[in-house]
Structure formats: C-alpha cells, structure tokens
Design a protein around this nucleic acid. Sequence first.
DNA 1: TGTATTTGATAACAAATGTTATCGTCCCAC
DNA 2: GTGGGACGATAACATTTGTTATCAAATACA
Lengths: 192, 192
Amino acid sequence: MFDQFKNKFPVNEQKWNDYISCFKRLEVPAKTTLLQEGEISKKLFLIEKGCIRVWFNNNGKDVTFQFFFENSTVASIESFRKEFPSPVSIETIEPSVLWWIHKKDIDRIIEEIKDVPLLRDKLINALFDRTFDYMKHFFSFIKNTPTERYLNLLQEKPQIVQRIPQHYIASYLGVSTVHLSRIKSKISKQKQ
Amino acid sequence: MFDQFKNKFPVNEQKWNDYISCFKRLEVPAKTTLLQEGEISKKLFLIEKGCIRVWFNNNGKDVTFQFFFENSTVASIESFRKEFPSPVSIETIEPSVLWWIHKKDIDRIIEEIKDVPLLRDKLINALFDRTFDYMKHFFSFIKNTPTERYLNLLQEKPQIVQRIPQHYIASYLGVSTVHLSRIKSKISKQKQ
DNA sequence: TGTATTTGATAACAAATGTTATCGTCCCAC
DNA sequence: GTGGGACGATAACATTTGTTATCAAATACA
C-alpha cells in the first residue's frame, strides 16, 4: 500500500518505516460512519479499497459534499487542523479497506518534514491545489446549470457517475434526485 | 500604510525596508481594470483606500466572485501562483488608492521568509484559512437559499451591502438583480 | 430462492427563480 | 442646470427546479 508513495518522500529508511508504522489497517462494511458531524476529527484515513463520501445534515436533508476513492486521504480538514467540531460526517459508500493515522502522529510528521525543503514545498503546493479545487467546484456552481455540471462530472470524474448511487450525486450537484433523473433523461433523448 | 503590518513581520530593519520598497503606489478611478481575464497575473495589489471586485464573463454575463476592501491584498491567486491565464478579471469599484508589487519580488520575499519558522507557519495558516473561506462560501451555496445567503451577508459582511452596487451583489449571491430586489422587498415587509 | 430494501424513473402539481420590459430616482459630466 | 447613464423597484410572464406520490427494477441478504 505504501510503497507507491515511498519514492515521493525523500526521507531515510528508518524515518520511512517509522512513518508507515503509524498507520493501522481497518476493514469496514458499506455505510460505516468514520466521523460524525460535531465530533472533533482525530483520524486521517487513506483508502486502499472502496469509496467514501463527506456529507452534512441540512435541516434533515442529507447533502453530499465530496467523494473519495482509492489512494486518497480523507479527513474533515478544518476539524482536523483546528480541532473544531466537524461540520461534516464521513461515511463509507462501499465496503472499504482503509488505513488510518492519529492526528498526533500526523502533526509530528508534518513538523519534521517541514524542515525538508522539498517536502515543505510539496505541502504548500498541496494546500494551494486544495484551494484551487474548492474554487473550481464553486465556480461551476455559479457558472453552470445543473445539466452542465452533470455533463462536466461525466467527463471529468466518470468514476463518480459509475460508482456512486444517484441520490448522492444529486445532492453533490445541488439538485433533487427527481431533477437529476430528468436531466439524465433529457440528455439521453438528445443523443438519440 | 505598511507600519500596521510591521509588527507581524519579525525581520530586521534592513529587510523590512527592502520589502516595502518593492511596493509602488497607484491611484485609479472607479471601474479601472487591474487584470483582464485571460492575462497572466504578475501583480499583487494591496488596497489602501477603495474597493475591488473579482469577476468573470459567463456567456456575456458579468458574474462577481469576490469583493475586497481596505488593507486586503488582491490577485488572481491561481494565475499568480501558476502563471496560468487568469480565469477572472480584477476591477476597482470605487476610486482607489493601491500599492502593487511585482510577482518576482513576492516570490523572492516568500522564498526568504519560508526559512523563518514563524512566517512559514503564517503562510501555511493563511493558505488553510483561504481554503476554509472557499469551503464556507461554497457551503452556503449548497446549504442556504438565496434569501438566507443575503441575510448572512447582511450580518457577516455588512460592508458589502453598504458599499457595493446591488447588481454586483446579486451575481455574487447567485441570483438575478430582479430576484435580489424581490428578496429585499420581502424582508422589509416581514420586518414591518 | 424469496423478500425487503435500495435505487431510479416518471407524472402532476407547487414554488422558486429568471427574463423582459417599464418606470422612477439619483448622480455625474458637460 | 440638464441630459444621459447607472441603479434599483416592480409587474407580467416563462422557465427551472422542488415536492410528493407511485411504480418498476436492481440489489442485498437471510
């Protein structure tokens, strides 16, 4: 699991083994809650197999915010960093194999790698990229219609459309399940 | 202008003078374009007086994305960092007094301060905060109705409602000018 | 394999929001 | 001062999207 990341981390063998030994394996069924809205996030998850959604309760309605697949890390980033109650819940969609690491270990590792210029820049770049991602996603909410957002999703993240139940996708796109159904039916009629 | 920031920058007098001498003063009328969509951003602006909006052209429609007031810095952050063509334009709303600095100077300064742990952490924190801001703004688009978004704006950023022409606010909130007008009229009727 | 649950499509109707047009007011440049 | 443009309110109508309900198909699982 971790070998694929090894060449990206210019640290010595001992450090590397120290770091990866902080991760614990976890096998869970679908619909397992990994973090409950309101809790303070203490764990970062790495997905070996399966997928995860981040969602929140909006007046009783379940609104999905993000999806994560294999080889991604997941945490309620604001809660994890600032030790705030998390505004979101984290839940598996499929039965999943995960690796998790405790915040105190991550904090130590980040503290250590911040002195390695290459890794420090990588961290900063990752933060920039995360910001751009939010910006882009947000842009598409202002700029595009729900139909356009769905077409973009099909093109840019086909994995989501293929693997994720439609009602999660609907709230992710900001529309009702009924409307997403209408959008799909309209598109398939146009193609004919 | 710069004295207010001085105590936040633990660098020696010489460095400090070097840094602030990179900024040039600029006085411009309202509706001045500081960066055109499609250009590569090379300047970072600091606002001494006035306000600025960041917007983009969406099929001929002018969509405002962000507002900035006194003591804020403004740039097309993705374009500035990655030297991409900017997806947004930057324009003054009011007649403004600005200070700008060239990208090459900023890059040098960031490179230098990255070795000062305190400033390095500040930079990283600033990036986290920026990410949270986007997330929060985005959340409100999914979570709230346009009316709720307007009420939040009134409460959290009254400056925007007071100083910015309404049609810019409408596109910022993701509604038509007519609908924002309806929202305002509905609210004022409820208060009576 | 059979049954319950989840998922998705569709119809009918309701509510929210956009579009176009018109009008009044304010303000700035001449 | 005054004429034109920017700004904002409002009405009438069109379109989009949500809501509720129902049914069919797929899937999970005992």
